[in-house]
């Protein structure tokens, strides 16, 4: 599993960890039932605090992506992939709606928006 953390990003580190594990679960790179690294070993390997990895796992558990089996470990939970994807689409629609509203207010054309998306798509990691 690969996780890339940026210390200069404005996104909190626990959120970066959470989102990356989540996307690996949605893409099925991490299949259901797969054991995940413990809170402490993940903290050590990512050189971050224990509370950070603990928060990431707690949120993943709250959202139903992982489950903790006491004294055994943390595992990828059974998730409804279709539902998870639908949620991701829904989130994206919300963000784009805001962007399009902003564009319309400033008289930016549809073509320009698509051009910007094309450029940014290549730039974003």
């Amino acid at each position: 599993m690969e996780i890339i953390i940026s210390n200069s990003s404005n996104i909190p580190i626990y959120e970066q960890i959470k989102e990356q594990i989540k996307s690996k679960i949605i893409s099925e790179e991490l299949p259901e039932g797969e054991m995940l690294p413990s809170i402490r070993s993940l903290a050590k390997d990512l050189r971050c605090s224990v509370i950070t990895t603990k928060n990431a796992y707690e949120e993943l558990e709250k959202e139903g992506f992982v489950k903790t089996i006491p004294a055994k470990g943390i595992y990828v939970a059974k998730i409804n992939l279709a539902l998870a994807k639908e949620e991701a689409y829904h989130k994206l629609e919300n963000i784009l709606t805001t962007a399009i509203t902003q564009a319309k207010m400033n008289d930016i054309s549809k073509k320009d928006i698509i051009d910007i998306i094309n450029i940014l798509y290549e730039e974003v990691l």
Partner: peptide, 25 residues
């Protein structure tokens, strides 16, 4: 990077003691 909590002392008094995440985020 690695501390879970930060405790800050100034002139002999504790002025804050919180999780590092809370402080930095």
């Amino acid at each position: 990077h690695v501390a879970d909590y930060i405790t800050f002392i100034n002139e002999g008094k504790i002025i804050l003691s919180k999780t590092t995440n809370e402080l930095l985020n």
